[in-house]
Amino acid sequence: MVALHSVVAEVEGAIASGDPAKRVSMLRRMTSLFTTQAPRLNEDQVGAFDQVILRLSRDIETRARADLAANLADVANAPRHVVRDLAYDASAEVAGPVLERSLRLDESDLIQIASGAGQQHLMALSRRSALAERVTDVIVSRGDEKVVRSVAGNRGAQFSLSGFQILTTRAERDVELEHTLAERVDVPAAQRSQLIAMARERARRTLATEFGASAAERATLAIAESLAAPPVDLTPIEVAVARQAKVELDETNVQEWLSMGQTNYALVALARFAGVPSVIALNAHMAPTTDPLLFLVRSARFGWKTLKLFLASRSDGEPNADDMQSAFQSFQELSVATAQRVVRFTAAREKLEQSTAA
């Protein structure tokens, strides 16, 4: 603190001079002095710096205030009044660093700023390491698309029931937000059900565009049937397939397993290539229709021969000529991109339903 007392006269002189350059220079000097000593200062000593830096930092150029904010944002015991003054600055360049990172702002300040600030300020707030429900209630109500996506993806943000409902409602028009919410583990059961319904309807519309309404309905219902619990423990097979993958795992391995009657190995491998849990592939294989297998095989970019082998390995045996021809036609008409979208939807839905059950 001796160093601070020794420059008081210089501080007063810089302010009295009316010279912006001298004032900014002195501000930088005092900021450097504070950050160097900060770990050793008590609150009274921080308060002394608070008064000096606050006087120097007012009515100066934006760039200098932005530099000050950047220097203080991560200081655990930064001067409270200075941080608060910076947080309320109309310039997001100045306010942003402290709004995003400073721990010296009270919840009441965060709420007040969120209630009246622009989108850049809200974006900074959305990235804070921790956000209480009262703050996120304001952010999800006032934030634009980017801000809402950001706060929804923030694992340190807590949301009230009404906040989650606002997010879910907004997700109806924002597929990226829908996917972000699907990754959260704290979404209430009612909102989870809404997200599942959204994902199903979005997939149905996508399929309807490519195949017509009836085909879309059939495919989404068939995929949904693949979410039942597995009848066998697939863990040993998953371990064996993972071991094979360390050496080499490709479509040829899948075909060989099918040819040797090791269907579950082929199904676990198929799930691995499609990026879904093994249970989805196993239940798709047992589904009443061939659609689930079709989507999984196509999403894995496997060929017709592989699908034909999977169909022949089903409990009801190889399809007759007409059914096989129909399957071949569906295989040719289904694009890889569409198959992958449906499979992603299926995996996301299973994750949501498992979370709800838990």
Score class of each variant (00 low, 15 high):
residue 338 T to F: 01
residue 249 L to W: 11
residue 81 H to F: 04
residue 185 V to D: 13
residue 76 A to S: 12
residue 287 A to M: 08
residue 60 I to G: 15
residue 131 L to T: 06
residue 214 S to M: 05
residue 89 D to W: 01
residue 184 R to E: 06
residue 344 R to Y: 04
residue 51 Q to G: 09
residue 269 A to F: 02
residue 180 T to Y: 03
residue 204 R to Q: 11
residue 237 I to D: 06
residue 53 I to V: 14
residue 209 T to W: 01
residue 62 T to L: 03
residue 306 T to L: 01
residue 115 S to L: 11
residue 222 A to F: 07
residue 324 M to I: 05
residue 108 S to W: 08
residue 221 L to Q: 12
residue 90 A to H: 09
residue 34 F to P: 10
residue 285 H to Y: 08
residue 225 E to V: 08
residue 87 A to M: 12
residue 195 L to G: 06
residue 37 Q to I: 05
residue 135 V to I: 10
residue 246 K to P: 00
residue 5 H to S: 12
residue 292 P to F: 00
residue 179 H to R: 12
residue 316 D to S: 13
residue 147 V to T: 15
residue 170 R to N: 09
residue 80 R to E: 08
residue 320 N to K: 04
residue 302 F to H: 10
residue 85 D to T: 10
residue 120 Q to C: 00
residue 91 S to W: 02
residue 174 D to V: 03
residue 14 A to G: 13
residue 71 N to A: 14
residue 259 S to M: 03
residue 249 L to F: 12
residue 46 V to T: 15
residue 278 S to F: 06
residue 101 R to D: 03
residue 260 M to W: 00
residue 1 M to N: 09
residue 199 A to I: 12
residue 74 D to I: 04
residue 328 F to P: 00
residue 282 L to K: 01
residue 283 N to S: 15
residue 1 M to E: 10
residue 330 S to F: 13
residue 255 Q to Y: 00
residue 68 L to P: 07
residue 245 A to V: 09
residue 295 F to N: 11
residue 75 V to H: 00
residue 355 S to R: 15
residue 235 T to P: 03
residue 313 S to N: 07
residue 226 S to F: 05
residue 275 G to R: 07
residue 52 V to M: 10
residue 70 A to S: 14
residue 235 T to E: 15
residue 254 V to M: 12
residue 112 Q to K: 01
residue 343 V to R: 10
residue 15 I to V: 13
residue 190 A to C: 03
residue 160 S to K: 03
residue 196 I to G: 11
residue 67 D to R: 07
residue 125 L to R: 01
residue 178 E to T: 14
residue 94 V to K: 06
residue 133 E to M: 05
residue 84 R to M: 09
residue 218 R to S: 14
residue 267 L to T: 14
residue 89 D to C: 03
residue 115 S to K: 14
residue 178 E to C: 11
residue 285 H to T: 01
residue 145 E to F: 03
residue 37 Q to P: 02
residue 343 V to I: 14
residue 226 S to L: 01
residue 203 A to G: 01
residue 197 A to D: 15
residue 337 A to I: 02
residue 128 R to C: 03
residue 258 L to M: 07
residue 253 N to I: 00
residue 169 T to P: 15
residue 74 D to T: 12
residue 156 G to D: 02
residue 236 P to F: 03
residue 218 R to L: 09
residue 170 R to A: 10
residue 88 Y to P: 02
residue 264 N to P: 02
residue 281 A to F: 01
residue 226 S to D: 01
residue 294 L to K: 01
residue 197 A to V: 12
residue 117 A to C: 15
residue 186 D to N: 08
residue 110 L to R: 10
residue 260 M to E: 08
residue 190 A to W: 06
residue 356 T to D: 11
residue 119 Q to S: 10
residue 87 A to Y: 13
residue 299 S to I: 13
residue 61 E to K: 11
residue 208 A to K: 06
residue 36 T to N: 11
residue 212 G to A: 02
residue 90 A to N: 12
residue 165 Q to Y: 10
residue 358 A to Y: 08
residue 352 L to G: 06
residue 93 E to W: 06
residue 263 T to W: 00
residue 74 D to A: 07
residue 305 K to P: 04
residue 136 T to L: 06
